[in-house]
Simulated assay, not measured.
Amino acid sequence: MTDINKAIAFAKECLKWDDPLSVVTVYHPHVIIDQRNIERTFVPALVGSSLDGFLGKRFFIQINRGTTSLFKWRVMIGLQDISKSAARYDHAQAESDDLYDAIFDACVAAARLYGDTDY
């Protein structure tokens, strides 16, 4: 089960939401909403479109299973275009037993790592 705090950090740092909060609905145990813009919502277990919105054409994502342990997921995020002079060659990485936890951790790490560039 995804750590909801990681999903909230993803909404705040990667999607740039002002005031994300987790709520429980009839259909999903957790939905993340932006309290200042109620139209912004995502379900951590169905993160596809929100992830696409963060990655866009700026980042690539690589997901592997079983690299350090058979039951761990490893996620790496990096810049797609490293031809620019200020581009960084390092990548944001995360590992977890839960795939979405690893994705959220890697996205937050990428937002922090590349946040000071215009790519």
Rank of each mutant, 00 (worst) to 15 (best):
residue 66 G to W: 09
residue 111 A to V: 03
residue 92 A to H: 04
residue 28 H to N: 14
residue 29 P to R: 13
residue 69 S to R: 10
residue 72 K to C: 01
residue 51 L to R: 07
residue 27 Y to I: 09
residue 85 S to Q: 12
residue 39 E to G: 00
residue 102 A to M: 05
residue 86 A to F: 11
residue 2 T to K: 08
residue 71 F to T: 15
residue 26 V to R: 14
residue 119 Y to V: 05
residue 43 V to S: 02
residue 13 E to T: 00
residue 55 L to C: 07
residue 100 Y to P: 00
residue 107 C to V: 01
residue 20 P to M: 09
residue 103 I to S: 00
residue 25 T to S: 15
residue 75 V to Q: 03
residue 51 L to C: 01
residue 35 Q to W: 07
residue 113 L to G: 01
residue 42 F to L: 09
residue 53 G to M: 11
residue 57 K to L: 14
residue 20 P to N: 08
residue 52 D to Y: 04
residue 118 D to Y: 09
residue 7 A to Q: 07
residue 68 T to C: 02
residue 4 I to F: 06
residue 114 Y to Q: 08
residue 86 A to I: 11
residue 56 G to V: 10
residue 2 T to I: 15
residue 67 T to S: 07
residue 4 I to G: 01
residue 114 Y to S: 00
residue 56 G to M: 09
residue 99 L to V: 10
residue 47 V to M: 13
residue 34 D to N: 06
residue 47 V to W: 09
residue 115 G to E: 09
residue 8 I to G: 02
residue 77 I to Y: 03
residue 75 V to G: 01
residue 85 S to R: 12
residue 101 D to V: 10
residue 100 Y to T: 07
residue 91 H to Y: 13
residue 15 L to R: 06
residue 46 L to K: 08
residue 92 A to L: 08
residue 14 C to M: 02
residue 43 V to H: 07
residue 117 T to E: 15
residue 14 C to F: 11
residue 10 F to W: 03
residue 50 S to E: 14
residue 1 M to C: 05
residue 11 A to R: 07
residue 47 V to A: 12
residue 8 I to W: 12
residue 96 S to V: 02
residue 58 R to K: 15
residue 48 G to T: 08
residue 110 A to Y: 00
residue 70 L to H: 13
residue 89 Y to C: 04
residue 57 K to G: 14
residue 113 L to I: 04
residue 51 L to A: 02
residue 11 A to C: 04
residue 80 Q to R: 15
residue 43 V to F: 13
residue 62 Q to H: 09
residue 63 I to A: 00
residue 41 T to R: 15
residue 33 I to L: 15
residue 78 G to V: 03
residue 93 Q to K: 01
residue 38 I to V: 11
residue 3 D to F: 05
residue 7 A to L: 12
residue 26 V to L: 11
residue 61 I to P: 02
residue 103 I to E: 02
residue 96 S to I: 04
residue 80 Q to E: 12
residue 16 K to P: 00
residue 67 T to F: 05
residue 74 R to F: 08
residue 49 S to H: 12
residue 45 A to E: 15
residue 102 A to Y: 06
residue 37 N to E: 14
residue 101 D to Q: 06
